[in-house]
Amino acid sequence: MEVGLTHYLAVSALLFCLGLFGVLTRRNAVAILMGIELILNAANINFVAFNKYVSPGAVSGQIFALVVITLAACEAAVGLALVMAAYRGLETAYVDEINLMKW
């Protein structure tokens, strides 16, 4: 059997859903961010796979992947800064305990 576009899309879908599971069920904010990283990786696999199978010869998909990696880095930096700030203020990194605005 030849490895085709669908194979990559399936792996990416599974990775996406694992990330989604992490985001939905984790209590720790850092763990949620890790789930988001998995989701972004899944998206990147899609970009690069479409690049190869749908528009070979150009590198637009890879450019997109690079931009997504950049954004992932920025997201991690800002998101983790928020976690640090929350931990300093509220002494917890668990999202269900950060409920000051719920009142």
Binding site: T70, A73, A76, A77, L80, A81, M84
Partner: peptide, 16 residues
């Protein structure tokens, strides 16, 4: 430690 990690990530992305 976190602040240095943060500045590092941003400049590492610049380097790529």
């Amino acid at each position: 430690y976190y602040i240095f990690g943060l500045v590092f990530v941003v400049f590492d992305v610049e380097v790529i």
